[in-house]
Nucleic acid binder design. Structure first.
Lengths: 229, 229
DNA sequence: AATTCAAAAATAATGTACGATCCAATCAAT
DNA sequence: ATTGATTGGATCGTACATTATTTTTGAATT
């Protein structure tokens, strides 16, 4: 394979700003500036991003291909609407993939890798959920340290796509105190298992971590719906 | 969720012909009429399909989003080039997903479902690899009977997408006699496990089936490369 | 004469503009 | 309530401008 990725793929730093219309719309969806289920009118968007309609249409098609946007014939595009079932579906896939990626990491992790993980975790604990967006970034980076090392780029990119979708949802809801505690302790536990070269243990922690994260989001979605249906 | 799929999704019969430019290009990629790594020039394609350039450009963007096409800035689109590592990556994911989908099927399968599976298998054995394309269709349908029943549409669509990619590759290579025998016996074994309500057994057979299929494709790719490098 | 390199031409992607047509949702009138 | 006209917006087509890439050409050097 060349250095050409089949999709935008994983960013190197996570700090660069979007340049293409595609990236800008994508970013607006993930960051929540475009609501789930919101209609995406080509004219509006081309205006918003200061381009003509063609680039917008092409960007929407690409987003459709990636699953961030749905389109109905002659009725245009909408931001992917997300319900509990959708989150559950993604989480079920991640529960299969992430432990597998983690197992590989355990087998190749160096001291430097573990030090990087511990540093990332220290940052997470320092922020301590005071800034939700910042926590999201750091948490993503923590896991990215693990998954980026995997030889299966396809699986890593799938994780990344799911991660972005989940991030787009999760940012609309608060994180409960109990979930916060669980996140921290599971991260610590994960590092410990990696250090101990316990691949199965690490995989089990990750599975629990992913599942807990999914359950938490689904519960928050339900709670929010009960408040304002 | 509504009845709107996030992507073209799974067809009902598998027999209808493509209508949109998107579907036609996709079909030409999967069927091999467009070679892996072949350049996809907008003007050529718009000519080929009798449309203007705009629909072609949008179709290519959508295909890029789905991963069938890669694009480099200012250098246009190419059909996804496929190497052994790519097949391995997809197979590794399928080895995780398909057994899980199968487990669910075992828990909900009715007599009618099993009869349908047996009928599909009978057809496969009747064709007996005499027509590779036909076998491919039937084999896809066999597994589709299982996966279509799953509540996780996201996972089922992922399977479908991977299936199509693998089909596009596999059709370029012959199926060895030993692989043919393995396919038939594994299918029979799978049906037996499902009948016996042995979810773990069925999942194990599927895992072996997927892995064997991947190994076979990779071996054929290697063999072909050794002949004409 | 052969080789190298740079300028120029050709090719093709990308972006803009705009008009035609079609679909479906809304509103009006029967 | 059904039908029919209006209208917003998507879809598709055409044409052309701009920019980047690739190929060709031709001059200069070895």
């Amino acid at each position: 394979m060349s250095d050409v990725s089949i999709s935008p793929g994983l960013p190197q730093s996570g700090l660069e700003q979007p340049v293409s219309v595609f990236e800008m719309i994508r970013e607006d969806i993930i960051s929540g500036r475009l609501e789930p289920n919101e209609r995406l009118k080509v004219a509006e968007l081309s205006d918003r991003y200061g381009t003509s309609t063609n680039p917008v249409r092409e960007a929407l098609q690409q987003l459709r291909g990636e699953g961030f946007v749905i389109m109905e014939p002659n009725r245009g595009a909408r931001v992917l609407p997300i319900d509990e079932a959708f989150v559950r579906d993604i989480i079920e896939i991640e529960v299969l993939i992430e432990p597998t990626l983690t197992r590989w990491f355990v087998s190749i992790a160096t001291d430097a890798d573990i030090a990087a993980l511990e540093a990332a975790q220290a940052e997470i604990e320092a922020v301590n959920f005071s800034d939700a967006t910042r926590h999201g970034q750091l948490d993503t980076r923590f896991h990215q340290l693990i998954y980026d090392r995997h030889y299966n780029r396809h699986a890593a990119e799938l994780w990344w796509k799911h991660r972005e979708i989940l991030r787009a949802i999760a940012r609309r809801y608060p994180t409960s105190l109990s979930r916060r505690a669980a996140v921290l302790s599971e991260h610590r536990e994960l590092i410990a298992r990696i250090k101990a070269q316990d691949a199965d243990g690490a995989a089990a922690v990750v599975a629990q971590h992913v599942e807990g994260s999914g359950r938490h989001i689904i519960e928050q979605m339900g709670a929010a719906k009960r408040l304002r249906p």
